[in-house]
Design a protein around this nucleic acid. Structure first.
Lengths: 222, 222
DNA sequence: TAAATTTGATAGCATTACTATTAAAACACA
DNA sequence: TGTGTTTTAATAGTAATGCTATCAAATTTA
């Protein structure tokens, strides 16, 4: 079986491509474990170095700082998702079913790909939910953006916006709706896990999430 | 004119109530300026102390750490907004107009109240947009939640959910829609300022934002 | 006026976020 | 097989961060 993985992660996020060396892959693997475990605020390169049995200085040769590492991971997710969407929708005729597929992918944890041993997709999905917004909610956002570090997110939204426009070419807010769909999927999962009064989902109820977002989307477009 | 400000900020966020002393008020005033200027990641009590001509130790007597200070400010906003919503909707008969009023308030910068000299509402609104999600996107969220530090947000969502249910008692996802409305308003403003490819709004176009969210809401409920 | 509280000044300490240097190890290739 | 190049580990160091503690001066309150 051929790999579906034809996407490339935007590269200004790292000093040296981590997937090209053993240490780099261990950095990715363990940073996902550690981020999932202790969260971005408590995550340091010192702790990461310790958990992979290496040194801070070695990690700095791959990533400038933890913010760039987060951006790398987030971009990996956007790239993975965009690729997945293209693979799973290109054979579909109905634009509505295409949009449904997108929402289904966004609303469910990405499944483990055993051919990529350095990314734990389930944990990465959880990191996206809990930390993803911090990739752009920083003072450096304009600078990062001008370096192309959000191309993954923008590409994804563009695809979704096009599906929306294919269903209703007159709808005026396709990009806003696209980003709202993405953000809402992640937010509602987080709320179901931690602030249940802010949602109607039971914890990690991906099926109800899909119903909610799909209905909202369909009603809004028409 | 009587003050509308009958709300109280949830108090576990602070060690000592800042509005009851001169220093406390200066802490609020300057923390809003500084947060708006340099963002939460670069914000430190040392810098804050310097900018108000006081010391770190003094600030720690009011707030345990910067996360609690952010929670205080965020709760102030939720409280302010809830109060404002109640004042501006209680005389309205139409539930739809009530919901419209909520969205209008969420989608526009809160206007300056000259009777509260220690809060710059415009800057606070900008802080909510850029930093608000960080109040809950932390590993301590469950602990904070059990101490009641998100009651403000939950109360607000509950009110909005009730307006939604008053319009359509059969709608199944009133809480999810309520939190989606709130998050979307803030997100779309941020995107319009920094990641315009993710939205159709022009920068700070509150009027288009209102149209977008109102249409989305109305379509979804019916 | 005394007692209690609040603030400012100063000090200190463990951790974080890096940067620099050097030597060992691994690898590339001739 | 040896030589050069890149990669990594080890170590050290520095400025900033995130606190805590102590004490005296100033202010408030009783």
């Amino acid at each position: 079986m051929l790999s579906n993985l034809t996407f490339v992660v935007s590269n200004k996020t790292c000093v040296k491509d981590p997937i090209k060396s053993e240490l780099g892959k261990r950095i990715l693997l363990e940073s996902i474990n550690l981020l999932d475990e202790i969260g971005l605020e408590h995550f340091t390169f010192r702790k990461l170095a310790k958990s992979i049995g290496s040194t801070e200085a070695s990690i700095y040769r791959y990533f400038e700082n933890k913010h760039k590492l987060l951006l790398y991971l987030v971009n990996w997710y956007w790239g993975w998702l965009e690729n997945k969407i293209l693979v799973e929708t290109h054979h579909l005729r109905s634009n509505y079913v295409k949009l449904e597929t997108v929402i289904e992918l966004l609303a469910s944890p990405i499944e483990q790909d055993p051919t990529i041993e350095y990314i734990n997709e389930e944990k990465l999905y959880q990191i996206i939910i809990a930390e993803g917004a911090k990739a752009y909610l920083v003072k450096e956002v304009d600078e990062d953006n001008s370096e192309g570090l959000f191309l993954g997110y923008k590409g994804l939204c563009s695809i979704i916006a096009n599906f929306i426009l294919a269903i209703n070419p007159k709808y005026k807010h396709s990009h806003s709706l696209a980003s709202t769909i993405v953000e809402t999927c992640h937010n509602q999962i987080f709320f179901s896990q931690h602030l249940p009064k802010l949602t109607d989902l039971k914890e990690d109820d991906h099926s109800t999430l899909k119903d909610f977002v799909l209905h909202l989307t369909a009603a809004t477009i028409h």
